[in-house]
């Protein structure tokens, strides 16, 4: 307490560095343990003369000792350079892929996030207000079922019903073919709003519906539980009783309680981000969403060391920053938190 918030933030921010270092190290070691290398993976069944193979390895920097490779890449990252791709297309800056893919994942993430929080708040509030009854039990079952839904399975069923049978919604990709939008942020919904391109906005939103509902529902279970339990606590507190005594009733009280129950939800949001990317891999695979999850999986297949390292570190950085912000906000909000 004595050292103040600034100190806390600084320490908390510095803590991100070792986290990223550890992750980078784990990923680096894992990748070098994988059999095969990017050169052979690309050559596949084609003949590749030994001299050319050595040359390609040299160009990719793979002839150097792994320790040298480790520090070279680390040094590059400190300067904001995530290296160049090693598998086809070779030599493209990894940052370009992150630049292309990250907004896709972010957009999906934001929408799933919004859906899961809204669903969680709604179901959790209802459960808390009717606690102990059938509705409460029902919401509890909902939270467990939602959590245990297997994403590809659930996604496929949605695709089948809404994409194929009813033909209401597109089932893959981010935009209808032929549509393009000037890039401002890379988030198509935002970009189309900024550039007032309503066709793109419509198409982007339509493409977002199924994947974000899939991921959103799966993630909402955790919020349902949390909101319910917090609401139950808050509803039992004195100030709510006071409101009720003053004659404030029903949904109005719920609204006050909800606002107070929101603090822990903020914390969960920070934690959920990591889980979200895991879910995003399966969601992106099921819906052909060109995001970071599918990028990493594709690149593992071709042993594209630099791409995977870069993508993982970038994402870890992002997750770290999000949780940092959540912590700061939390510290600001809740005087009980000691820093």
């Amino acid at each position: 307490m004595a050292r103040g918030l600034g100190y806390y933030i600084a320490v908390r921010a510095l803590m991100i560095i070792p986290t990223i270092l550890v992750l980078y190290t784990i990923v680096f070691i894992l990748l070098r343990m994988l059999p095969g290398d990017p050169i052979l993976a690309v050559a596949g069944t084609k003949n590749i003369p030994p001299e050319q193979y050595e040359e390609l390895r040299r160009l990719a920097g793979l002839d150097k000792h792994p320790v040298v490779q480790y520090f070279d890449y680390l040094w590059g990252m400190l300067h904001g350079d995530f290296g160049v791709t090693l598998a086809t297309p070779r030599g493209t800056p990894v940052s370009r892929y992150i630049w292309q893919r990250f907004p896709a994942t972010l957009e999906l993430t934001i929408f799933s996030f919004a859906i899961s929080v809204l669903l969680g708040l709604a179901t959790g509030t209802v459960a808390a207000l009717r606690r102990g009854g059938m509705v409460d039990a029902g919401m509890r079952v909902y939270s467990i079922v939602a959590y245990t839904l297997f994403i590809p399975w659930f996604g496929m069923i949605l695709q089948y019903i809404f994409g194929l049978q009813l033909a209401w919604l597109p089932t893959s990709g981010r935009l209808d073919p032929g549509l393009t939008v000037d890039r401002v942020t890379g988030l198509y919904v935002l970009d189309s709003l900024i550039t007032r391109n309503w066709d793109v906005l419509k198409s982007a939103l339509a493409h977002l519906v199924l994947p974000s509902i899939t991921l959103g529902i799966v993630l909402s279970g955790a919020y349902t539980r949390l909101v319910r339990n917090n609401m139950v606590d808050v509803l039992g507190q004195d100030f709510i009783r006071a409101y009720q005594a003053r004659g404030v009733r029903g949904w109005k009280v719920a609204w006050y309680a909800l606002k107070n129950a929101f603090i822990p939800v903020v914390t969960l949001m920070g934690l959920q981000f990591a889980i979200l990317l895991g879910g995003a891999v399966l969601t992106e695979t099921t819906f052909s969403w060109p995001g970071m999850g599918t990028f990493i999986v594709d690149r593992i297949e071709y042993r594209d060391y630099t791409s995977i390292q870069g993508a993982v570190v970038f994402f870890a950085l992002f997750v770290g920053l999000i949780s940092l912000i959540v912590d700061i906000v939390y510290a600001l909000l809740d005087p009980r938190v000691k820093y």
Partner: peptide, 22 residues
């Protein structure tokens, strides 16, 4: 609002950072 603003700043910064190299 605070979260929203901070999020936007981060995203913007990240996008700018990555984008600069291209």
């Amino acid at each position: 609002p605070i979260i929203a603003v901070l999020l936007i700043i981060i995203v913007g910064a990240a996008a700018f950072y990555v984008g600069r190299s291209m």
